[in-house]
Simulated scan of single mutants.
Amino acid sequence: MKNSLLTILAAAMCFAAGPSIAQPATPAPAQSAQVQLTDAEVRKVDKSAGKITLKHGEIKSLDMPPMTMVFGVKDAAMLDQVKAGDKIRFAATSQDGKFTVTEIQAAQ
C-alpha cells in the first residue's frame, strides 16, 4: 500500500510538472520576417547626399502619418533604381531619430 501511494504521488508530481525534458519538443512556429512596405511617389533623388524625398502613405511600423519627407538610404546603390515621379513601395526604419529607407521595390 505504501509503495502504491508513492507511485501515485510520483505520477501526480510528473503530471503537474508538465512534459519531461526527455520528450521531443514540438518545433516553434516560424516567425514571419516579412517586411511591411509602404506606397510612395519619388519626389527627388539626391545621390550626392545619399537621400531620397518621398511622398508616402502611412508607415505603420513607424507610427507615421502620410506626408512628404526626406529619408537617408541604407545603400546608396538604391538611388540608381529610381527617379523623380516613380511609384514605389518601400520599407524604412528609425534609429536615433534618423529615418532610413532599407528596401525599395517598383510599385505594381
Rank of each mutant, 00 (worst) to 15 (best):
K44M: 09
D46M: 02
L9N: 10
P27S: 11
C14F: 15
L62D: 06
K55G: 00
V73W: 03
V45P: 02
A91K: 09
T7M: 15
K98A: 09
K55T: 12
A12F: 08
K83T: 07
P65A: 12
V82F: 05
Q23R: 06
R43M: 14
T26K: 10
T100K: 09
M64N: 02
A106F: 02
V42H: 07
A106S: 11
Q36A: 15
A22E: 06
Q34Y: 02
S48G: 05
K98I: 10
D63F: 05
A25D: 10
E58A: 07
M13I: 15
A30Y: 03
L9M: 11
Q31P: 01
L54M: 07
C14I: 14
A17P: 00
T7S: 10
E103R: 10
V42T: 06
I52P: 02
A33F: 13
Q23W: 13
I52Q: 00
V82D: 03
P27N: 06
G97P: 04
T102V: 15
G57C: 03
T100Y: 06
T7D: 13
V73R: 06
A91P: 05
V82K: 01
M13L: 15
F15Q: 10
D86K: 07
K87M: 12
A17W: 00
A16C: 11
D80G: 00
C14G: 05
I21D: 13
D39K: 15
G85C: 08
K55L: 14
